[in-house]
Amino acid sequence: MDQQDTKPHRWGMAIDLDRCTGCEACVAACHAENNLPLSTPDSAAKGRAFHWIRIDRYYEGAFPDIKVKFMPVLCQQCDEAPCEPVCPVYATYHNAEGLNVQVYNRCVGTRYCANNCPYSVRFFNWFEPVWPEPLTLQLNPDVFVRPVGVMEKCTFCSQRIKRAELEAKQESRSLRDGEVQPACVQSCPAEAMVFGDLNDPASRVSRLAQSGRATRFMEDLGTQPKVFYLKRGE
């Protein structure tokens, strides 16, 4: 049993746009894992649907040789996150493991962080979420149901990271690469998404991050996102 790893993890993700088919299995998996509130036709029309990860479409060219690029967008857990300095109560901050944590019970709901996020990946609980009985039985006990008036966003499934870390600690070993997988990465049929520790150069995500095809979304804003998109095509 190797001794426990000393260097803290720095979680990151690589999404291979050449593999992504835009089938939105990740969107459904995220709903299943993180107790996202159900939207209704009315609340969706008012722009209040919750999708912590969404697939953006960028069309290039015109019919007949038109192409579309699918772009899964989720919280990029930026190292220089614009949403962190503006929160007046430290409800969102950057923890040692490189995650941009949203502390639900600390948030007072000024929503400044959502304005400042260039990726528009933050969602606000305008109402108390409600699930008609017996759908509440499906709620994941590892994840808190956010009350009304609180901001929420993708957490890289911090509950799965926490559970894996506790298991590794119990067996006093370090986390293996690929042992922790957020719900979206786990469910992606085309295996386009890879999650891992960027501090560990041997991990698959680090190798993909250094590959020639890797770029980062709106990197010029200086947010230093931690999701690497691998270019589509040759």
């Binding site: 502390v103 639900y104 808190f144 911090s158």
Partner: peptide, 10 residues
Amino acid sequence: ATEDCAACHF
């Protein structure tokens, strides 16, 4: 021990 908010509130 850790003082990370995410240690207890996540």
